[in-house]
């Protein structure tokens, strides 16, 4: 087990390395002079010169990368062009709300998705199945920003039950996490259904039924448990979908998280913030995938042997 974990960790290190290079090069990818971009539109020639000096843009590129990484590892992500604050300070207040948001979305989506998928499989080709699958296919086809706007219209404007956004404690998380989770819930439901249907055809389920186990025991204790393995993987892979979706959902609900910060910064061309936000999203995603892989191998020891 430990060997497998170490192996997986070693495997992601080169990816993190390349991602950090890409993030470093971000400023250089943008057409135009990086120093001018960072100095801003109204900067004088002298300002641009100073920025060039400050960023070390006159140094050879590998030296620039080393000093970039050095700063990064010390938690120095640069200074925002818009607010003049250190980027790390801007992140610290927004990082956790985004994590909670994705977390809540994941939790409700997994529970409801599993439930719908299991019910659909058990009542295959009967009305609960049709209802469940219509819900699921609609869920993956709904544009998140539209669903968000409709929920705001219904629950905030007409019923006045929940805030339209902002940061009013737990209440502010309800509508955004509902919106964010809808797509994942649907994918988990579809996946649980097909996985469970496959499991229900195996020999040990037939044995279980033949020896007179109650149907509920067969399904919950034997079938569902084994169907969970692929579902975990799918749920983990979908985490990326959640991170991408959170950008849209946070914008719709004016939610004070990383996603909205990213979009606001793009509008303002606040490159230091964009650069670090993208890097943070990527590393977050890589780490989640690592955790999912390890979880998967705990659930299914065969994986370790194969690799």
């Amino acid at each position: 087990m430990l060997r497998y974990i170490i192996k997986r960790v070693l495997e992601i290190l080169p990816i993190i390395f390349v991602v950090s290079i890409l993030s470093f090069l971000f400023i250089h990818f943008i057409p135009g002079d990086p120093a001018r971009l960072v100095a801003g539109k109204d900067a004088t020639l002298q300002d641009v010169q100073n920025v060039r000096e400050e960023l070390g843009l006159n140094d050879p590129i590998w030296k620039q990368y080393i000093s970039y990484m050095g700063n990064l590892l010390q938690g120095n992500l640069g200074t925002s062009l818009k607010t003049g604050l250190p980027v790390s300070d801007m992140f610290s207040s927004r990082f956790m709300p985004s994590i909670y948001l994705t977390f809540f979305a994941m939790i409700w989506a997994t529970i409801i998705g599993l439930l719908i998928g299991a019910i659909s499989a058990v009542f295959k080709n009967k009305w609960p199945d049709y209802l469940g699958m219509v819900t699921a296919v609609s869920g993956i086809s709904l544009p998140g920003f539209w669903l968000g706007l409709l929920l705001i219209q219904l629950f905030s404007v007409q019923l006045g039950m929940l805030p339209t956004g902002g940061s009013e404690g737990f209440k502010s998380y309800i509508l955004p996490s509902l919106t964010l989770g809808a797509g994942i819930m649907s994918m988990i439901a579809r996946f649980t259904r097909s996985s469970l249907l496959e499991t229900l055809q195996t020999d040990y389920i037939r044995t279980g039924r033949a020896k007179g186990l109650k149907e509920s025991v067969v399904i919950i204790q034997h079938a569902l448990r084994n169907s969970l393995i692929p579902v975990v993987t799918i749920a983990g892979l979908q985490f990326g979908f959640l991170l991408g979706g959170s950008v849209v959902v946070e914008t719709v609900f004016s939610f004070p998280g990383m996603g909205r910060l990213l979009i606001d910064s793009i509008a303002f061309r606040d490159y230091p913030v964009i650069q670090s936000a993208l890097l943070l999203f990527a590393i977050e995603f890589i780490i989640v995938n690592l955790v999912v892989d390890i979880l998967y191998s705990v659930l299914n020891p065969k994986i370790q042997i194969q690799s």
Partner: peptide, 22 residues
């Protein structure tokens, strides 16, 4: 495959957002 792993580490819409940001 390693390059696609790198692209994959900018999940979903975020890769598209990054490209448009550039």
């Amino acid at each position: 495959m390693r390059s696609s792993d790198v692209l994959f580490s900018f999940p979903d819409l975020l890769l598209a957002i990054a490209i448009v940001a550039i």
